[in-house]
């Protein structure tokens, strides 16, 4: 090969083609356009974060503590304006989601991946769950409304107190259930067959294999999924509006861990943000309040999301 290249003409031709390649303006343009797509996206993200941060300084910079302890008010200049009720609602919604959706979702995933026979009924359930994950969140709100508020089934409204943090939490638990099932299922499928065989081989029962090998190995994946779904639940507003979260004035101001207030009227961080944003047209001071509430919500949501991302990346790297 080398000797043939000594031919001057072919050498020149190769040089020319390399030269052409260097000057491939169309290719460069294409790459630049693609880079721009990413840059615009990231710039929008940056502008969003900066706008929110700047807007929020009026509240966070001057009266953070009062803001966290205050309540829903009709005027933005009210010095008792604040997030306490919103944080109460969001905290309890998160707890209810964790208590209801995680065990049921992980249990369903264990059944579908480890126990269920591969038949039509099983694949029907799996398709069904995947479709549930795509149902708009506002529709879940309708279900919560029909089920938990209007007492169409079993008079559940008497148990939930109608429009309450409990109703909101149950509704969002139903909303994230398919996400928990899907992400946990993926984690179970990643467990190597050799581990299962090793455990079966020394006389472990199915459940013992699952409890001692499958669940521990899949734990990081499951945790990632639950963190992501928790972040999703805490950020959701539409279903809560449907189940009657309060955006105007709320009577009492329960302590953060006051279980008794679970069946009372409620609000949550995303609802507070919505309400203040909508009111900002009438009363400009609400812009700062909404931005400050967003900062508080983002701190929680992004913390859970980044924990999930880090956890996943770490284990992907570790396990190759």
């Amino acid at each position: 090969m080398i000797s043939r290249l000594s031919d001057d003409r072919s050498r020149a031709a190769i040089a020319a083609s390399i030269e052409r390649r260097r000057g491939d303006t169309r290719g460069l343009l294409f790459k630049t356009v693609l880079q721009m797509c990413l840059l615009i996206t990231l710039a929008l993200l940056a502008v969003l974060l900066v706008t929110v941060a700047l807007d929020s300084t009026d509240q966070i910079g001057t009266r953070l503590w009062d803001f966290l302890q205050g309540t829903l008010r009709s005027r933005s200049t009210d010095e008792r304006l604040g997030l306490h009720q919103g944080m109460y609602g969001s905290l309890w919604i998160a707890i209810i989601v964790a208590v209801l959706a995680f065990p049921v979702g992980i249990g369903a995933a264990v059944y579908l991946e480890e126990y269920a026979p591969r038949n039509r009924f099983t694949s029907f359930i799996e398709v069904n769950i995947r479709n549930l994950a795509g149902v708009p969140s506002v529709v879940y709100g309708l279900v919560g409304l029909a089920l938990l508020l209007n007492g169409q089934i079993f008079g559940l409204d008497r148990f939930t107190g109608g429009s309450s943090a409990l109703s909101g939490g149950i509704t969002l638990a139903i909303l994230v259930l398919p996400i928990v099932v899907i992400t946990s299922g993926e984690a179970f499928r990643a467990v190597p067959i050799e581990l299962r065989e090793g455990a079966y081989g020394v006389g472990a029962t199915k459940w013992e294999v699952i409890r001692t090998q499958v669940l521990p190995y899949a734990a990081p994946g499951i945790l990632t999924g639950t963190l992501l779904s928790m972040a999703r639940a805490v950020g959701e507003a539409a279903p809560l509006i449907l189940v009657g979260a309060i955006s105007g004035r709320l009577g009492d101001n329960p302590g953060l861990f006051d279980i008794g207030a679970l069946t009372d009227q409620f609000t949550a961080l995303p609802i507070v943000i919505t309400s203040w944003t909508v009111q900002s047209g009438r009363d400009g001071g609400f812009t700062a309040a909404a931005a400050a509430a967003i900062v508080v919500l983002l701190v929680f949501v992004l913390m859970m999301n980044s924990a999930a991302i880090l956890l996943r990346n770490r284990f992907e790297k570790k396990r190759g």
């Binding site: 190597p192 050799e194 581990l195 065989e197 090793g198 455990a199 079966y200 081989g201 020394v202 006389g203 472990a204 029962t205 013992e208 001692t212 090998q213 521990p216 190995y217």
Partner: peptide, 28 residues
């Protein structure tokens, strides 16, 4: 499977300590 043990093609120790690997079967 307890009475008829098996050793597999690829060594497949559990991601646990040496002790816990051996004690796994008796424990379950």
């Amino acid at each position: 499977r307890r009475r008829i043990g098996m050793v597999f093609q690829k060594p497949n120790p559990f991601p646990k300590s040496i002790y816990d690997n051996v004690a796994y079967g008796p424990r379950v």
